[in-house]
Simulated scan of single mutants.
Amino acid sequence: MNPLRNAVNRTLLALTGAALLAGGGWLALGGSGTADRLPTWWPRPEDGTALLDRARLADWRAEDWWTPAVVAGTAAALLLCLTWLLAQPRRGGDRRLPLAGPPLTLRSRALADAVARRAEATPGVARAHVRLPAGPKRSRARVRLLLEPGAAPGPVLRRLTHGPLDEARASLAPHPLRTDVRLGARSRRERRTR
């Protein structure tokens, strides 16, 4: 994840959490049951008051600006939250994989693309798709291969394991790379229609 985005996310979450915690603490501890035990500087609501009473809410609803303001504020909050959500990277997106030296990293998408290109160059493979969702110390490669008609899965899998996947493991050493491979076959009928 981008360090700037990570810092912004953590700051916004911390500020939201602090505001909710302060508001909840004020409401919970400001009640009449605990008011005697609180320090003198703690802000206390007056006895019998509510955060928003029905009479004041009815007065606000009678105003012409109330409904458009509430709708606009809610829509703006929703758009802000959706924008923030969509700005986040999806799980399994492009991450940085640790290499042998501490300052060295490799983008997971770059390694996945390289493994996919090498896999497609393997005899018997029509198409390859590779995903590398990575953790801090362990990586996992999810490989989907579409085999050519008549290609034997065993030899193709051996060539894939001792070729592109071994190269990927070597590039991530000393961190392990676990691989899941799914094989599918292209039918002769599909080949004729193209």
Rank of each mutant, 00 (worst) to 15 (best):
L38C: 07
A14D: 02
R158L: 09
T83F: 11
V115G: 00
L157Q: 06
D59I: 00
A170S: 02
A58Y: 03
A77C: 01
R118E: 14
P45C: 01
G92E: 08
A151F: 08
T34Q: 15
R61P: 04
D53I: 07
E46V: 14
R127K: 11
R158H: 11
D113Y: 11
G101C: 14
R90D: 12
L104M: 13
A185I: 07
A110Q: 09
T49R: 12
G150P: 03
A141W: 02
G17E: 06
L57V: 00
G33R: 15
A121Q: 07
A116K: 04
L132Q: 09
L79M: 11
R131Y: 04
A58P: 02
V143M: 02
G23W: 10
L147I: 00
L104F: 12
R178D: 15
D53C: 03
T67D: 14
R189H: 00
A114E: 10
A19H: 02
P149I: 00
R186G: 00
G25H: 12
P68G: 09
G93K: 02
A75R: 05
A18V: 03
A50T: 06
A114T: 05
L20G: 14
S108A: 03
M1F: 14
R182P: 05
W66C: 14
A58G: 06
P174C: 01
A126H: 12
T34W: 15
R37V: 15
R91V: 12
L132Y: 03
T179K: 00
R56V: 13
G73T: 13
T105M: 08
G163M: 04
A110R: 08
H162A: 15
A119N: 03
N6E: 13
V181S: 02
L79I: 13
T122F: 05
L172S: 05
G33P: 15
A77S: 10
P133W: 04
R178E: 15
T105A: 02
P3H: 03
T161Y: 04
D64F: 12
T105F: 06
S171G: 09
A58E: 13
R5F: 04
L99F: 02
R169P: 11
R158V: 12
E167R: 10
G31Q: 14
R5H: 11
R91N: 08
L97H: 09
A134V: 01
A126K: 07
L27G: 12
R138K: 10
P3E: 07
S139E: 05
A77K: 01
T16S: 08
R186N: 00
G184A: 15
A128W: 10
H162E: 15
L111S: 00
A170T: 14
L104D: 15
L12I: 07
A87Y: 05
P123K: 01
P176A: 01
L99Q: 02
R158D: 13
T122R: 06
G150W: 01
Q88K: 11
P164L: 06
T74I: 13
G23E: 02
R186A: 04
L146T: 13
A116L: 00
L106S: 08
A110N: 11
V130M: 01
